[in-house]
């Protein structure tokens, strides 16, 4: 009986561990995008993430956007070939989404970037300097985290400002 109970305990511990950490699985992006290199080439954030100043969302680059520069092979990176493959099949790059709001939370990039003048860094970290696509959000987006900042900056902390 005792070993069984010990096993039970270990099992529970493992389970809790998994639930705690395992729920945030790490997605692999389809293209191993190098932000740093692009940045160094003088590509602006808005070139690929075209909407963050005008819309609620920032947008992920479409295949066509990539092909504007990568029409002719610029590098020997195998991922370049991948993009061309997507282009050929008429598909969009299936970017994986990292920053996901809960269902009833509405976040506006425009409100934060264009109106409040926040920098991308505040939420996305030094993504411009990263050489690999991030696998998890730079910040853990909890309500507390949002609200702390709102309090600090005297922004609106009304529930309805985000929960619509």
């Amino acid at each position: 009986m005792k070993p069984f109970l010990i096993g039970l305990a270990i099992g529970t511990a493992i389970l809790l561990f998994f639930i705690n950490f395992g729920s945030s699985f790490r997605p692999e992006q389809p293209i191993s995008f190098n932000h740093k290199k692009h940045h160094e080439q003088g590509v602006e954030c808005a070139t690929c993430h075209s909407y963050f100043k005008e819309q609620t969302f920032s947008g992920m680059p479409k295949t066509a956007a990539c092909m504007e520069c990568h029409k002719d092979s610029l590098t020997k990176h195998p991922d370049e070939e991948k993009i061309k493959q997507f282009q050929k099949n008429g598909e969009e790059i299936p970017w994986k989404r990292l920053y996901q709001q809960p269902d009833d939370v509405f976040f506006s990039h425009r409100r934060h970037v264009a109106l409040a003048g926040m920098e991308c860094k505040s939420c996305h970290g030094d993504i411009g300097q990263s050489e690999k696509p991030p696998t998890k959000p730079w910040v853990k987006m909890t309500m507390k985290w949002c609200m702390d900042c709102h309090t600090k900056t005297k922004a609106n902390n009304d529930c309805l400002a985000c929960h619509v």
């Binding site: 809960p102 269902d103 009833d104 939370v105 529930c159 309805l160 929960h163």
Partner: peptide, 8 residues
């Protein structure tokens, strides 16, 4: 004065 609901 808007009476709101936080669904979550």
């Amino acid at each position: 004065g808007i009476v709101g609901i936080v669904y979550s």
